[in-house]
């Protein structure tokens, strides 16, 4: 798709908007609709669009597979880590109230952290799935 100037320019214009919208959905999820899952999907869609226009090779340079795998597992670790942090601070597993002096504040903090974990895992999963599908050789 190297010769389509319009597609390339529009993609470059849309990319920051898509990624910014993903971050908005991520960090605004406790006030409006959305949350980590949806934000991760939108973030992944940004990379899918980039891959469709600029090819898998250049997209892999932006998101190398090793880094993707790290982020993929890292999201689950963040989520479970918040749970373990609750344990260490004297609460139950995944009880966020002990994360801060004020229980309500702790709940907000915990939810934001686990949503971050959900978002990173989902985004990495979608990007790596698409890379795998787009990187396959065509059968003759």
């Amino acid at each position: 798709m190297n010769q389509h100037a319009v597609l390339r320019v529009v993609t470059k214009l849309l990319m920051p908007a898509i990624l910014l919208f993903a971050l908005y959905v991520q960090f605004h999820g406790e006030l409006g609709p959305g949350g980590g899952f949806q934000a991760g999907v939108i973030f992944g869609v940004g990379f899918v669009l980039y891959t469709l226009i600029f090819g898998v090779r250049s997209a892999r340079q932006v998101a190398p597979p090793g880094a993707l795998r790290t982020v993929l597992g890292g999201g689950v670790l963040i989520y479970a880590g918040v749970g373990v942090a609750g344990l260490l601070l004297g609460g139950n597993f995944l009880n966020y109230s002990v994360l801060s002096h004020d229980p309500v504040h702790g709940q907000e903090l915990g939810i934001q952290l686990i949503e971050l974990g959900v978002g990173t895992t989902v985004a990495a999963a979608i990007i790596s799935l698409f890379f795998i599908f787009a990187g396959q050789d065509r059968p003759e």
């Binding site: 999820g29 949350g35 689950v76 309500v104 907000e108 686990i114």
Partner: peptide, 22 residues
């Protein structure tokens, strides 16, 4: 009052049902 955020869907998913979401 308990969670302090206004989207009930998020508070149920992330806090009350945190195990399921994990």
């Amino acid at each position: 009052r308990e969670i302090g955020i206004s989207n009930v869907v998020t508070s149920v998913l992330a806090s009350y049902r945190g195990y399921d979401t994990l």
